[in-house]
Design a binder for these strands. Structure first.
Lengths: 184, 184
DNA sequence: CTAGCTTTGTACCGATCGGTACAGAGATGA
DNA sequence: TCATCTCTGTACCGATCGGTACAAAGCTAG
């Protein structure tokens, strides 16, 4: 007996590695160790439901581990620093791709438009909130938050493309100090 | 009678929109208006050859319109500014996705690893060269160039995800002024 | 006009796609 | 022990995949 939740990490990896279109049921079956019967028992909606569940779990993880601390934790400077730690770990120093980013670039964006939009919108909003609490102006916080999230996504692309995980770590370090020195 | 070169823009759009795996011959056939017979006559190697040709053309375009000016044009500040103009136009203010970035995130990265690596490596190197000529230190130029290219890629992801093309334009403007004020 | 070439549409190939049907295995409660 | 319900492996569905074969169509040289 296997629960939905137990399969989500394996599912997420398949979607990350192969994208939504490329994640065939054969791959999913191999990754989870479950036959089609079990898969469709757990996810009657098929691939679409699997992807939606994975996105929901990712969103929940980020909400708990990033967004909420950014909004509520004190001091905000510490929350921002913790965010960078969490990001570094979550993306395995750039070796792991951002599934939401992958979906945003593909055609499947339309299928999961709301989830994809929400993920990034909340990230930017939560980070902007922390920056504001740290003394930045309203506009400056929003702009800097956007910049930081974009830089993280770009660093994933670039470090993958150059096959150079150190680039990701380096980019995060640079961002860290930029945010710190910009702090009023 | 159709030449390979004439089909490349349509091919590129299909790969951009659907990724390598998602670009089926049916889609390619519809986008180019060519039947399978013609496609395999022009590209005996099939999809792989089509994608390779598209990548080669992209690479050539960037070499001509971005990398070479960055390396050779004087003054370097103008070359950098021109690069931002070219990027803004090429990516249609964030509405158009970067095919090389898409490939870098997917499994197809392995198929085109060298092309993907070269594209970004040359971009970063050319930009770093211009920054150095503009008076930045060796290390600072390399770091800033990396940061700028990553930020561009991230801005594409973010502006697509939020369905907000203005974000891309805004990010480029910010980068512009950052590069200018950092200039020594 | 015809012979010979290039270009193209179409039919077809085996493989795989996402999804369904269903029988049987495994657990569960009485 | 037996009936019941949850779970799972397998066979199968039509559709589509990338790719091939090939004949007809269009062009060009003589």
């Amino acid at each position: 007996m296997t629960t939905r939740i137990e399969t989500l990490p394996a599912l997420a990896e398949v979607f990350r590695e192969h994208g939504y279109a490329g994640a065939s049921l054969a791959l999913i079956s191999a990754a989870t160790g479950l036959g089609k019967g079990s898969l469709y028992h757990l996810f009657p909606g098929g691939k679409a439901e699997m992807a939606a569940c994975v996105l929901a779990e990712i969103d929940a993880w980020f909400e708990t581990n990033l967004y909420r601390p950014l909004r509520e934790q004190d001091p905000p400077e510490q929350a921002v620093s913790d965010m960078f730690d969490a990001v570094e770990g979550y993306f395995r120093s750039g070796r792991r791709v951002c599934l939401v980013g992958v979906l945003a670039l593909g055609t499947s964006r339309d299928l999961f438009a709301e989830a994809v939009r929400g993920y990034f919108a909340r990230w930017v909003a939560a980070l902007a909130d922390a920056l504001r609490r740290a003394g930045h102006g309203e506009a400056a916080s929003a702009a800097l938050a956007e910049e930081v999230v974009a830089q993280i996504q770009g660093a994933i692309v670039l470090s993958r493309a150059l096959d150079e995980p150190a680039l990701f770590t380096r980019a995060l370090a640079t961002l860290r100090s930029r945010v710190a020195t910009a702090a009023g």
